[in-house]
Design a protein around this nucleic acid. Sequence first.
RNA 1: GUGGGCGUAGCUCAGCUGGUAGAGCACUCGGUUGUGGUCCGAGAUGUCGCGGGUUCGAGCCCCGUCGUUCACCCCA
Length: 420
Amino acid sequence: MKYQAPKGVSEYFPPRSYAFEKVKESLLAPIRRAGYKLVELPVFEETELFTRGVGASTDVVTKEMYTFEDRGGRSITLRPEGTVGALRCIIEHGLDRGALPVKVFYSGQYFRAERPQAGRYRQFYQVGLEAIGSEDPALDAEVIAIADAGYRAIGLTKYRLEITSLGDRQSRAAHKVDLMKYIDGLTLDESTRARADINPLRLFDDKREEIRAMMTDAPILLDYLSEESASHFASVQKYLQDMKINFSINERLVRGLDYYTGTTFEFVHEMLGAQSAIGGGGRYDGLMQEIGGQPLTGIGFGLGIDRALLAAEAEGVVNAEDFGVDLFIIPLGDAAKTQTMILSQELRNSGHRIEIVFGDRPLKSAMKLADKNGARYVLIIGDSEIESGMVEIKEMSTGRATSISLTSLVATLAQESWTL
RNA sequence: GUGGGCGUAGCUCAGCUGGUAGAGCACUCGGUUGUGGUCCGAGAUGUCGCGGGUUCGAGCCCCGUCGUUCACCCCA
């Protein structure tokens, strides 16, 4: 085997590609129903957009970006996340000049040069949305509810929603001072110390027992929220409760992108191993302005399709059987082949899923093929059928055959009783 | 970037203490004339990841390398 896909990319092919499609559509449907509008965005952007937007000190920017120079000497980067690019599009085309909030959604692949792992790929797929220009806590709740509806549409049940508030700039600054003071008093190894210097909140998320223990008495950001932030967060919770969306407050929830402020959330699946976050998002107060837009707040999420699929498979809620065809046509002989080509074209034009058998397979083998492809009905066309003008259409599940005239076939199949 | 596991037919894997490879599934054909799902029969398929070493002899041992996988970091 000479060529293989680049390291860390996931490819989806039958039959799993069908489940992938289903998961993606399930996540997308609630977004569309809430009035969010599609934006198709480039997979690469000017590098600076990400260093400015995502945060120059984040791991994502410092060591996980696919960056290269294009032929004109510009520094280009494959998008490591979706929000910044979506906002760039909104700002560039003035979508935020009309009625607010602007509500957009998108889906596609993202790239991060990390060491691959279960549920973590160098190219991964996400469905995301952004709502720009409203501070209303009801919007926070809507965004969370949409994600939750997507997971439910897939059929997932073994996940939980964790939320917290990162507060506003002042809340954070005050907390950071005390947290740094606390961390300075700890004995940490060099790399952990370095991480703490970049973002002290990270230590809350450390998986090592000894670090967790050290952090149990650390000052919690929630205790430092300004009155405004606290009441906003309280409203979000109230709306979620009213909508009967289960959640828990994780005061130690940390996200890897620097732009988050206020409401922040994560959906965590319990059957996924180390990479258990299937989706997450939050509010970002300064981001629009940071990348050259109006000073508008915004909120959004990114839902990992790969991980949602993994979760669906772990829960056994994906059924990949619906990739069958309505009608399988088996031609016997040259004249029949021509007839089949014409017929399949007509039937496909009227919306049916039609497959035909290619090559000169023995009839028996052609029947097997139809069966394996999940054909609901099979039609055999040979010399006698062409001569008599009558064909038998066989229902595979019952084995029963019905006689229909060739000329009325298209019309007959369009009827209610033949719900192809 | 750091650490552990694994690399044998398309897939899942077996191969005992070293003697030049096997199963199941899948695939193709057949079980008398143009009808599938079960059953039976036949058949094709491997540079045993790659390179070196030890040995009379290596899929099995040693070294390296690449790939893969899981975990840390980080995150969807």
